[in-house]
Nucleic acid binder design. Structure first.
Length: 363
DNA sequence: CGCTGCGGGATTG
DNA sequence: CAATCCCGCAGCG
């Protein structure tokens, strides 16, 4: 890699931002810098008007990944890929998990999938879900631009996210698969007694609900990776197997019109007046301090209503320096639009879903 | 099934 | 005309 692997540990995040040479360009320039002394480590949570130059070898950069939920938007310029932020899905009841975290689900990138997602309910309290759209760029979603040029991949972010971070792609995937398995479970319990047995066995054997009912799903091989490379990187395909293995355990399970039960009565976009919007969450949006804790974030979920009780055991005791605490002081439930102005919310109706577990993005 | 990139088409200023 | 936004399509995992 081009990146100076030796650079000090703490540099990770700001390397690019402070190198003048790297900030002097704009993604739209006809010519971008060709002599880059040092490329950046992939940034999982780019925010504010930052720019980065990644090695064209960087897988995450190649895939234009981001832990923010970014969707492709056509700018009719095949050379510059533009993506805009979809915001974050929150609980309309503004509920908190047992360990005090808020629900920040990752909006599905695909429009259709997102609509479907909104018909579901909060994995924590079963309440309605709301999509808080991003309005961090002059009232519009934050945009990210990617441009592949020679041995580098230039990245530029425009706008500062005015909402909490959603789950990472990995967390969302994990939650999905778990949910699927779960659903299948409950729906076809009859033929699955056997399986249930297995499940029980499993939970008894090792996974204590309290902390890691399905820990395997989230343990990443990468753990071994040297911290140096580790930071910031998103999931690697190599990890996928982990997730699939889970489903692999319940091969015969099949979903039975589960989600069909949601009654979505009203789906409205609430367009708050915006202003009040930002504020509260920005705390979470450290401009540069990101990703470090990334993938390995501790996930708390309750497979069968297990009290995540003493969770914070310390899976990932905040690696990222700047961000002491993910959760923000939020008003007690009841109020939903705490950030009232945020963006537009889409609230949906509540449904009684049997599924329960879920993962919470901890930041 | 959902993510990702592509590109046509429509809209706006 | 450029910049956006909306939408469907196709490849892929």
């Amino acid at each position: 890699m081009l990146k100076g692997a030796d650079d000090s540990v703490m540099e990770q995040e700001d390397s690019a931002s402070r190198h003048g040479e790297m900030t002097s360009w704009d993604i739209n320039d006809i010519k971008l810098p060709q002599h880059v002394s040092q490329t950046d480590w992939f940034q999982e949570w780019p925010d504010s008007y930052v720019k980065h130059i990644y090695s064209s070898e960087d897988k995450n950069a190649q895939r234009h990944h981001s832990s923010w939920a970014m969707r492709n938007t056509n700018n009719h310029n095949s050379r510059i890929l533009k993506k805009s932020c979809l915001g974050v899905v929150v609980c309309g009841n503004n509920c908190s998990t047992l360990d005090g975290r808020k629900i920040y689900l990752r909006p599905a990138i695909c429009d259709k999938a997102r609509q479907k997602q909104q018909r579901k309910c909060c994995p924590n309290c079963n309440g309605p879900l709301q999509l808080l759209s991003c309005r961090g760029h002059g009232g519009y979603p934050v945009t990210n631009f990617w441009r592949h040029e020679g041995q580098f991949i230039f990245f530029q972010c425009k706008g500062a996210h005015d909402h909490p971070r959603p789950e990472t792609k990995l967390e969302a995937e994990a939650r999905r698969s778990i949910q699927k398995a779960k659903t299948a479970f409950s729906s076809s319990s009859l033929r699955l007694k056997r399986i249930q047995k297995i499940e029980v066995t499993l939970s008894l054997t090792g996974a204590m609900p309290t902390q890691e009912p399905l820990p395997l799903l989230l343990s990443y091989p990468d753990a071994h990776m040297p911290p140096a490379n580790f930071r910031g990187h998103l999931s690697k395909s190599s990890q996928e197997p982990t997730l699939s293995s889970c489903s692999g355990q319940l091969p015969f399970l099949r979903r039975a019109g589960e989600d069909g039960q949601c009654t979505h009565l009203s789906t409205q976009h609430v367009l708050p007046m915006a202003e009040g919007g930002h504020g509260p969450f920005s705390s979470d949006v450290g401009p540069l301090g990101d990703g470090s804790c990334g993938t390995e974030s501790p996930l708390a979920f309750g497979p069968c209503v297990p009290p995540p009780a003493a969770p914070q055991g310390g899976p990932c005791p905040m690696v990222r320096g700047a961000q002491p605490q993910p959760q923000l002081p939020l008003p007690p439930r009841g109020r939903e639009g705490h950030r009232g102005g945020g963006g537009h919310h889409v609230r949906l109706n509540y449904c009684n879903n049997d599924v329960f577990f879920n993962l919470y993005p901890l930041r």
